[in-house]
Design a binder for these strands. Structure first.
Lengths: 185, 185
DNA sequence: CTGAACATGTAAAAGGTTACATGATTTT
DNA sequence: AAAATCATGTAACCTTTTACATGTTCAG
């Protein structure tokens, strides 16, 4: 019985902190809010819900479900709420990304210029797609009543973070491309 | 026998592409060049080297080692070089990051303003540390002769990418902080 | 002579993704 | 009537991390 929760379990606590939700709702909310820097897959979500329930951090809400497979809504217990706050107050783990595409760029010197350029174009296209996708997210849309009523528009913060990242990455592509074209005229 | 190589195995091919190295040298090179967005741990490195050798993608170079535990230097076989090039030419996997810290920010609306501010300060400190660390990396230092002789300074590209990211993240912290302070004067 | 850096490895566990399986309800 | 979406779950697999284990060589 490791005392530590997994990152996914902590995220689940976060989504339940504002109000009760079903597994499916957590999944959808995660997709909307954090899909680009945080994935929650079914294979983790439902087992972790059971695990959190076994630990008394969440509990099932009486369900008004219709069929035999009705959706199960969960809410935080007082212990769960305490665990959630403790998590937010804990020192954060250092940032760690894994981007194989950058590794490719590192080795691009071994391609000829045309192929190296193609690699950068591909990167740019990917970042531009990301940027467009985030721009299409209307701030405030799709939030629950609680989220909209909150003093801080934190989902917008996350969106801004993504937009800033995408912009800086696209600029970087431009610079690298310019240098590639300068290197062998 | 899955035909696919793991990301770590592909990275190893990349480091061997310019010239032969030992496992230890790959580890050190990876630490220098990509540690912030790509980790290579011992527990992966050495087994993957054996696996690549078993697949005939790399081969042991005659070692002039002294002791019973001499370092083993590896080089790409022709098949390994082909696999390396094929990888560079493959379409890239979409970017996927996992940053639990951003998840915390998403839920920061449930803290009072002082605690939310603390969360942002912590983020900023982390990004600033990252930025300082990259600034301290002297472009071109620690490279091998081949790397320095290459037409493209790709390790510098990676450094620039990191610096751009850090700058945009720090700016974002400033903006969020300003908004937090405006929200409840 | 002691500690740091060199150098290679193994075992276990943790965590996540993918694919599969099932069935209800709603929309077209 | 078919297709999409809602909704929950399991099993297998893959990859990575962590901790452990071992021994050498060089510098202070």
């Amino acid at each position: 019985m490791t005392d530590e929760l997994t990152p996914t379990a902590r995220t689940i606590l976060g989504f339940l902190a504002s109000h009760p939700r079903s597994g499916y709702e957590i999944r959808e909310a995660a997709k909307r809010a954090v899909s680009f820097f945080w994935g929650v897959s079914d294979g983790q979500l439902y087992p972790q819900l059971k695990l959190l329930a076994a630990r008394n951090l969440i509990e099932a809400v009486e369900q008004s479900g219709t069929g035999p497979r009705a959706r199960q809504v969960w809410r935080l217990t007082p212990a769960g709420h305490a665990a959630f706050l403790a998590w937010l107050r804990e020192p954060s783990a250092p940032l760690q990304t894994r981007d194989e595409n950058l590794v490719k760029i590192l080795f691009a010197a071994q391609l000829d210029r045309a192929e190296a350029l193609r690699l950068i174009e591909e990167r740019r296209a990917s970042f531009q797609w990301f940027h467009r996708h985030l721009e299409a997210v209307v701030p405030g849309a799709g939030w629950t009543a609680e989220e909209r009523a909150a003093a801080l528009p934190t989902p917008d913060f996350i969106r801004d973070y993504g937009l800033g990242f995408a912009r800086s990455a696209i600029d970087w592509c431009d610079q690298v491309e310019a240098e590639l074209q300068r290197s062998a005229p």
